[in-house]
Design a protein around this nucleic acid. Structure first.
Lengths: 242, 242
DNA sequence: TCCGGATACTGGTCTTACCACTTGACCACT
DNA sequence: AGTGGTCAAGTGGTAAGACCAGTATCCGGA
């Protein structure tokens, strides 16, 4: 294993993760009150500002509601949390949550073609040449993880071409969830993907027709989606993340 | 104007909003260094912990990167920020950003039908009856803002039926962005919507066929989307939010 | 029974101090 | 010239304590 930068977790980070774990695991149900900041600080052996930073971040994510003078209560994260919570749900305690991956993968299949269709209508020559270069790099790579990084870069360009801030932010959120799981998923996906499909998609994007582009995008995504979903169906238990 | 709860903005909230404004407005470009926490605290006339809470929340949103011992630098939010940033981009300084609304509206049109198709495959009887009840309530309402709330509730149910945590979180984020702008948008949308289209969609969902459901969903969303987009095209300037 | 206030909580904010880390400059050694 | 060591200044990280401000609760008087 190559050298890696040492990870230094700060105290508020640690507190945040612990409380977040309690919430998303359901140990702290919606409506329940958290211990007071002072109590939490005492129990966890940290200072109150540290606890506060963590709780404010929880509030920012809409996982808790803090009321001045009243108790801090847990909110129903399924009802209120935003897409930025996805990474925390996807990989919990070192293992991957299968139903969550399933929903991400199927969302990818449903949204990807639409974004590609949008991109077809708005792309310019520079986009096309960058896409072509990325496909070339993809085809020249054998390492499965590296190949996945190239496909991510490809879709990043597609989203750029689509020129939609909403889809851009959506893609960022999904990428942030996808990235950590990438090594685990790469091997499963690898089987179903081919540079050919990406070349067809790129040609469709260059042509600029939304419908053919949508179809081409679906042909790109369908095999890896099927490969992943069947893999998920066979081993329905959580995967360990080494 | 009816009485409204007084808004009590906390100090860290204020700091957060100010710094966020600097970043998303581009006044602080990507890569630039923020003033030190002590300096910020001094300039803004608040304590350092208050500044810290705000900056940590900025970091959580991936808008800045804080490095222990080094300076806190601004990140490229278009590249890294998640969908939870959308509300802040949509309504900036009391007015609505037109290109952002445009992208949200078109995303709604592209994603909605897919989610509906998913819901058609997974809905149960309870979903259907709740959907029917919501359509009835919708048809019985005349106030445009209230009607929009009912459509939100309807789509909330559709997302529930789709049984996808990814789409659920996505919907939550989009709702959070949509909600504040709802009064402004309601009048424009109102023209194009009819209870009939929703009834057809509900019937398709009950039937359970993905393709007809997808088509029905598009017929629901298309009119209001067109109405909004043309309205946005005519007055391309920002709307004031009273 | 009901109202009103005392009181004991809660979170909100500030001050101060110190620790840990990064940066850059300088310097000695090779 | 280039290496690595040292140090000072500035940055973020953390803690402790105090006080302010808002809420919830209970208890006594009407």
């Amino acid at each position: 294993m190559p050298l890696q930068p040492v990870s230094r977790r700060s105290v508020p980070d640690e507190v945040f993760d612990q409380v977040l774990g309690e919430v998303v695991s359901g140990a702290l149900g919606a409506g329940e009150a958290l211990p007071s900041e002072r109590r939490l600080a005492e129990v966890l052996g940290v200072s109150r500002p540290a606890v506060r930073e963590a709780l404010q971040r929880m509030a920012q994510t809409r996982l808790v509601e803090v009321r001045h003078g009243g108790a801090t209560t847990v909110r129903d994260f399924r009802r209120y949390a935003g897409l930025d919570l996805l990474p925390s749900l996807l990989v919990r305690g070192g293992s991957i949550d299968v139903p969550v991956v399933r929903s991400v993968v199927e969302a990818r299949l449903l949204i990807g073609p639409s974004v590609a269709a949008l991109a077809a209508q708005r792309r310019n020559d520079q986009h096309v040449s960058q896409l072509t270069a990325t496909v070339t790099a993809y085809a020249a790579t054998s390492d499965p993880v590296e190949r996945q990084r190239h496909t991510l870069a490809y879709w990043d360009l597609v989203v750029d071409a689509a020129d939609s801030i909403t889809f851009r932010l959506m893609f960022n959120s999904l990428s942030a969830a996808y990235e950590p799981a990438l090594p685990v998923l790469a091997s499963v996906i690898g089987a179903g993907e081919s540079a050919g499909a990406y070349r067809v998609l790129t040609a469709a994007l260059e042509e600029g027709d939304p419908d053919t582009t949508r179809a081409a995008a679906e042909r790109v995504l369908r095999p890896s989606t099927d490969a992943l979903l069947t893999a998920l169906n066979t081993l329905d238990t959580s995967w360990e993340n080494p």
